[in-house]
Amino acid sequence: MMEPNTTATAIEPAVVCRGVSKTFGDGDSKVHALRGVDIEVLPGAISLLVGPSGCGKTTLISIVAGLLDPTDGEVHVLGHRIDAMKSRHLVPFRGENIGFVFQQYNLLPALTAAENAAVPLLVAGWRRGKAVRKAREVLDAVGLADRANALPSQLSGGQQQRVAIARALVHDPRLLVCDEPTAALDAKSGQNVMELFSRVAVQNDRAVIIVTHDNRVFHFGERIFHMSDGRIERVEGRGERGARSGEDIR
């Protein structure tokens, strides 16, 4: 097991995982998705979680986002130990503090872009009119002000992902969790989306975790957690990558 990746900075980590394991099934069909993962994710930067399919990226991000319980280990998010949190506390905690961007966007087809972006605010109990007004502001920030009234079916893949990003940011969460946000996009749209993350999502008090296996976007990551077979194999900082040849990292 790797030692927790601690940094010399005084910044409080947004996410700390210690010895996190996850198994699915039991007996002969038991699958070890995570095997004692230790990570720390700092706010104010994009952290990438990379690795081959089946290495445990999605399981880890699900646990970090409070969507899945670990079999073993501790998960601290924004100072709260969420693996020990009861569901009635965890659900509102997630709604208040975590923003999600999904690979397939998961926009509600019957809602306009602005209404989709307003969903987290509606979940938080905002009135619809006020929530949609706020959502329009965020859509403006992601460059979609003119498409606010369009339905998802009327938007391109890149535009839908930008709506999804607006939805993830509209309630100003302190942790943004993104699963393969560029996987369904062409290279140019993928670059645009990642630039958007760098420009709009990254804030001093917000941590951004992006699961990806798209090495064309690795350079957007401040830190890259390489995963293999349910373990963190290697952690790279931006400086370390700059000294390398760039074969596997951009």
Binding site: R88, P92, F93, R94, G95, E96, V119, P120, V123
Partner: peptide
């Protein structure tokens, strides 16, 4: 289901 899953992820009990 995916939409309901998204809503649950976003904090809908």
């Amino acid at each position: 289901l995916k939409q309901f899953g998204s809503l649950k992820a976003m904090g809908v009990s």
